[in-house]
Computed example of a mutant assay.
Amino acid sequence: MATTNPRDARIAELERLLDAAIARIEQQEARIAELEARLRSTSRNSSKPRPRTRLGRRSRIWSRPGVSPEASPAP
């Protein structure tokens, strides 16, 4: 009859925990790499302000259906 040494049981438990931790670290590293790639490709994260149109705010008024530049109020 073989008896299990308590040290062997503890070592086996620690090995299982280590394997689980390594797997989780690998998943997190993959997720971090994915998020970093998304950050690099997203233009909204740019520190540069968006360019204004040549006409500024008027361009929005003129772009509405049925509104012509002649019908808009003078500035």
Rank of each mutant, 00 (worst) to 15 (best):
E13S: 06
P69A: 12
E13M: 08
P75V: 03
R57Q: 14
S72Y: 15
D8Q: 12
R40V: 03
A9N: 06
P6F: 03
Q28A: 14
R58Y: 05
R16I: 05
L55S: 09
R24W: 01
P51H: 06
T42Q: 11
P51I: 03
N5V: 07
S47P: 00
S46C: 03
V67R: 15
S68L: 09
E34D: 12
S68R: 15
A12R: 01
S43N: 14
R57T: 05
S43Q: 13
R44Y: 02
S72V: 02
L39C: 14
R64A: 13
N45H: 14
L39A: 14
R58W: 04
G66L: 07
D19W: 00
L35K: 04
L39E: 09
M1N: 07
I61Y: 09
E29H: 09
V67F: 04
S46F: 01
S47C: 02
A30C: 07
T3A: 08
R52N: 12
T53I: 08
P75H: 06
R44A: 13
I61C: 10
R38V: 01
I25D: 09
S41M: 11
A71M: 14
N45E: 04
R64D: 05
R7T: 10
S63A: 15
I25T: 13
P75K: 14
I32C: 02
N5I: 13
R58P: 00
S43M: 05
S43A: 12
A21W: 00
P73K: 09
A23V: 04
R54Q: 12
T4Q: 12
L17S: 04
L17Q: 15
R57Y: 06
A30L: 14
A30M: 12
A71Q: 15
W62N: 02
L14G: 01
